[in-house]
């Protein structure tokens, strides 16, 4: 398992985030990649070839750590279907290693998520 270091380390307060629709909490400002690893998630996405991928460089270069995020807007009432549609539509692919955790972040991640086929992020020459 991936373990946070606690001896000699002080962290900010925990904030709520959502991972694949499940509410949980993690430390403000740590990278999203760190939060996911700490929850035991190693597969961050499936790429267009269908292969499982996870962080490689941890410095923003490789784009292997892509996950989908969507800022949840608390207080907004929605039907389950509308919520799901919005999730698919409004998902933005970000590098988990370069994205600090903020309150209310909602993440779509894992080998069951067909991430890059719906990708809104593209290389210059992306198909």
């Amino acid at each position: 398992m991936n373990k946070r270091i606690f001896i000699g380390v002080e962290r900010p307060a925990k904030v709520p985030i959502e991972i694949n629709g499940d509410l949980t909490e993690t430390y403000l400002n740590e990278s999203l990649a760190t939060a996911l690893l700490a929850f035991g998630i190693t597969v961050f996405n499936r790429n267009r070839q269908g292969d499982c991928r996870g962080p490689y460089c941890n410095m923003g270069t490789c784009f292997e750590c892509l996950v989908g995020i969507q800022q949840s807007r608390p207080g907004e009432e929605k039907t389950e279907k509308a919520e799901k549609d919005e999730r698919v539509e409004k998902v933005q692919w970000v590098r988990a290693c370069m994205t600090p955790v903020t309150e209310g972040l909602s993440v779509v991640v894992g080998d069951s998520v067909d991430t890059l086929n719906n990708s809104s992020i593209r290389g210059r020459h992306g198909r």
Binding site: R53, C57, M59
Partner: peptide
């Protein structure tokens, strides 16, 4: 080399020295 869990060593280091997490067993 593309399996999750295979990483650049410098990237593993950044998890430890910056994020303060040991990313593996």
């Amino acid at each position: 080399w593309n399996l999750p869990g295979v990483m650049a060593t410098g990237g593993i280091q950044a998890f430890v020295k910056s994020q303060q997490i040991v990313p593996g067993e």
